[in-house]
Design a protein around this nucleic acid. Structure first.
Length: 590
RNA sequence: GGUCCGCUAGCUCAGCUGGAUAGAGCAACAGAUUUCUAAUCUGUGGGUCAGGGGUUCGAAUCCCUUGCGGAUCACCA
């Protein structure tokens, strides 16, 4: 049992005995003792004065005396006003260490109990390469998947690819007017090549609009009647009619994009269990529309369009089917939600999608609930904020989009430069060196994007993001490398002597290590990787301080040395496991 | 206009299921390496927790309100 649980029970018993007031131990709250006071865990007595009918300090002393008489895990306590500060005994810390320092799974919990969760993320369009915004999405989705697995859930990662629509037709059109270059012939990554033609289309289109406007045609009309957009729309119609030429071109260009995306996913270390394609799902959802009409959840307007009135729920009146019987975005998402559930019967379905779609997902969930779908309650929109650049939003027209591949390359060369400058990689083969630099580069990038809580907008500062000092991925990786270096130089034969005393920096580290499973629980309940990121950073800081203050291998007292090496082992486990939850690898040397 | 989200040090962020004097990193300045990796550590300065009100023993944290920034309310996806 955890120290906090033991203490809570003792405190509840104490209040029961002293004041004849029955309290459940779960009602007792404990917190980490403030830095400026002696102690490890603090119980605040103010809310209980109504039972004790004594002054705060008297109450705290009475409870403290009860606990220390009944609980060997507590060595001392002190009282400051109504604050009761407990000191955890060294033997308790060492028992915990003894129990866990060889447990490479330390931190994993069984909160999920095998429940099935689908996490949908990435979900790119197929007309251009992945950019910084996708990176936040992908890293968040992947990390949440890892956290849920570690918390005992059965996770299915899914990627819903938007492979159809006007956007890809634009690229197709521009490409078909070009010289027929391919990724092979141009030596270009497929997604970048298709993206190039998307930009190409936009240039032509804008030029046409300008020309039309000069002829006195109003802006909106020019945008609708420019020849290239009309042509692209015709192409979409032909696609829907299964025109073999268009379908062949569409397949060819989409496959180029998929090859490109796969390379990027691979570099990021991300995989998916299931791909959905909108070309297969865009017609879904019509059965649900009929079902909704029968259940009188939807109404049909005189023109034949189908609507749902959500004004009672604080939302709006929303169309779910056009008058011509074709689907809108929400229709296909309803259908896809049903498809996912039919295939996997999952308990929870998480959509990692930017916060500009908050409204859409509210509507999606509430419609499914009104249709009486039980699984709707398990739907959760994991909404995240946009990534801004120092000069504002990313805008493709202004060429300020930070492309994922390019960014990863930049991070790599920075890592490479720093590794060379520091010159600690003697004896590395060329491949080992490359692999190390890639590990550091990815660590820096991933940590930078995951340490900020997802609901917040975040600023991506190119200068700062390549900083490898302070609260960064490389700092944590470095801490791991330091520990690894120590462990390389010691035999694997630690015996923990629980009667030994601990140095303050050892004890603080152990007490923080002990919190790892709770942090995993919090992160999994709130789908929040930043909890893990900040926690691992805290661990790394504590370890570096210990490393500086105390010698580990040079410790003359063999018992203390053995204990200290075991602390290193558990710290390494926590850092490695925690970083894995963020999708970040840790190097043995750097 | 309606709804939703955000606002904490010069900058980037923690802390938010209410607790003690609000914490880190970066930047600035001053130090630490004959010792297990200095991508490290120690110290100094830096705050109207956007403003105002409320709830209570106690509010950065909960509620109301105002301001600022963003998103959304498409027969686009």
């Amino acid at each position: 049992m955890e120290i906090a649980d033991i203490l809570k029970k003792q405190i509840a018993d104490g209040i029961n005995n002293l004041y004849n007031q029955h309290l459940d131990e779960n009602e007792i709250k404990l917190e980490i003792t403030n830095k400026d006071h002696k102690g490890d865990l603090t119980f605040v007595t103010f809310p209980y004065l109504k039972f004790s009918k004594q002054k705060p300090a008297e109450t705290a002393n009475a409870i403290g005396n009860y606990v220390i008489a009944n609980c060997s895990s507590v060595s001392h306590f002190n009282v400051v006003n109504g604050f009761l500060n407990f000191e955890i005994s060294d033997s308790f810390c060492l028992n915990f260490l003894k129990l866990n320092f060889k447990n490479t799974d330390f931190g994993s919990i069984n909160q999920g109990n095998g429940k099935c969760v689908m996490v949908e993320f990435a979900s790119p369009n197929t007309n251009k390469p992945l950019h910084l915004g996708h990176l936040r999405n992908i890293l968040l989705g992947y990390s949440v998947s890892e956290i849920l697995k570690f918390a005992g859930y059965n996770v299915i990662s899914a990627n819903l690819i938007n492979d159809r629509g006007i956007h890809i037709c634009k690229s197709m059109l521009a490409w078909s007017k070009g010289n027929g270059e391919t990724p092979q012939s141009s030596n270009t990554k497929g997604d970048h090549l298709v993206g190039k033609y998307y930009v190409e289309f936009d240039k032509i289109y804008r030029k046409e609009i300008e020309e039309l406007k000069q002829q006195g045609i109003p802006d909106d009309e020019a945008k609708k009647t420019a020849p290239s957009i009309v042509e692209a729309q015709n192409m979409l119609v032909k696609w829907e009619q299964h025109d073999p030429h268009i379908i062949a071109l569409w397949k060819k260009m989409n496959n180029w994009v998929y090859d490109g995306f796969e390379q990027t996913y691979k570099r990021l270390g991300v995989t998916f269990d299931k791909y959905y394609y909108e070309s297969n799902t865009y017609l879904l959802g019509k059965d649900l529309i009929n079902e909704g009409l029968q259940k009188k959840v939807f109404v049909k307007d005189p023109d034949g369009s189908v609507w749902i009135d959500l004004t009672q729920d604080g939302l709006d009146r929303k169309i779910v089917l056009r008058a011509d019987g074709t689907s809108v975005y929400i229709t296909q998402d309803l259908g896809t939600a049903q498809l996912k559930y039919d295939e996997y019967k999952m308990d929870n379905s998480i959509y990692v999608v930017g916060n500009e779609q908050d409204y859409h997902f509210k509507v999606l969930k509430i419609i499914l609930q009104k249709l009486g779908k039980q699984y709707a309650n398990g739907i959760f929109h994991l909404s995240y904020g946009m990534v801004d650049l120092p000069h504002g939003k990313m805008k493709s027209r202004e060429g300020t989009v930070v492309e994922a591949d390019e960014l990863m390359d930049e991070m790599y060369s920075t890592a490479n430069k720093l590794t060379m400058e520091l010159g600690k990689t003697e004896g590395f083969t060329e491949n080992e060196l490359k692999s190390l630099n890639e590990t550091i580069a990815m660590g820096a990038l991933k940590y930078y994007l995951l340490k900020v809580e997802h609901v917040k907008r975040m600023l991506f500062n190119p200068e700062e993001s390549i900083d490898f000092h302070g609260n960064t991925g490389p700092f944590i990786q470095y801490t791991f490398a330091r520990i690894s270096s120590v462990l390389r130089n010691t035999a694997n034969n630690e015996n923990i002597d629980v009667s030994c005393s601990l140095h303050i920096s050892e004890k603080e580290l152990i007490i923080t290590l002990l919190l790892f499973p709770q942090k995993v629980m919090l992160a999994s309940q709130t789908y929040n990787p930043s909890v893990i990121a900040n926690y691992i950073y805290e661990i790394s800081k504590l370890f570096n301080r210990l490393y500086h203050e105390l010698s580990i291998l040079g410790e003359p007292d063999s018992i203390k040395k053995s204990n200290r090496v075991a602390i290193c082992r558990l710290t390494a486990i926590v850092i490695k496991n925690g970083m894995k939850l963020l999708g970040i690898a840790v190097p043995e040397r750097m």
